[in-house]
Amino acid sequence: MIKLDGVGKDYSTDVTIGPIDLEIPQGGITALVGPNGAGKSTMLTMIGRLLRMDTGAIQVAGMNVASTRSKDLAKVLSILRQENHFVTRLTVRQLIGFGRFPHSGGRLNVADEQIISHYVDFLDLRELEGRFLDQLSGGQRQRAYVAMVLAQETPYVLLDEPLNNLDIAHSVRMMRHLRRAADELGRTIIIVLHDINFAAAYADRICMVKDGVVARFGTPAELMRQEVLSEIFNTKIHVVERQGCAPVAVYF
C-alpha cells in the first residue's frame, strides 16, 4: 500500500501542490490523470523519492520514503521518468541488466541473467537485445527502459507517462505488457497517463488530480461519467458506453 499523508510541495507562493491525502491499495494498475500542470508527475516523483516533498509523509509498503535508505527503497519501488539520459555505448540487454543493480551491486550472477532474459522476452525485445540504445526508435527505447524497471523486481512500479512518443499500436502493446506485469507478476503499478481512454481500458483505479490535489479516486466505472470528466478537464466530454468494452470518452 502507498500512503500519502498531507503531502505538499511549494514551487512558489502561487504554485503549490497538495496537501494530498491518498491511499493506493496494493496490486493492479492505478492511473494518475488530470490536466497539464495538475501535479501528477510531481506526485509520482515524490512517491519515488526523486523529488523532496516540503510537507507531509509518504509510506510505501510501510517504509517512509524520506527516511529509508535509497538502497533499500530500490528493492521495494522502481520509478521511470519521462526523459532519460542514455549512454550511447549501452546495449538493450546491458541497460536492462542495470535493473538488477539493487540486488547484485553490478556483479550479475546466473539468476540475474535469467531474470534479465525473462524481461527481455517479456517486452518482446529479444531481437533487439544486442542493439545499442542509440540505434533504437523512441518507442523501442521506451520499452527497454520499462524492461529495466521491471527487472528491478520491485513490488511497486511507478511510471511517468510511458506512452509518450508511442504510436497507437505501441501504446496498446505497452499497456498490455503492463497489464500482464500487474496480473501475472503481481506488481502494483502507478502510471501517469494523458489519455483518459487508456486509463479507462487498462487501469483498475483512476486517480484524478486537479490543481495540486486529488479530485477523485475510484474505479473507471465510477469515474467515466460525463459530468466528472468535463469538470476535471474543463472541456465538454461525452462518454460512450459500449457493450462488453470499456467506456470511451469523446471530446471532439
Binding site: D72, R81, H85, F101
Partner: peptide, 9 residues
C-alpha cells in the same frame, strides 16, 4: 533520476 531509482545515492 535513473541512478536514484536504482538505489545509488
Amino acid at each position: 533520476d535513473a541512478a536514484t531509482g536504482l538505489g545509488v545515492a
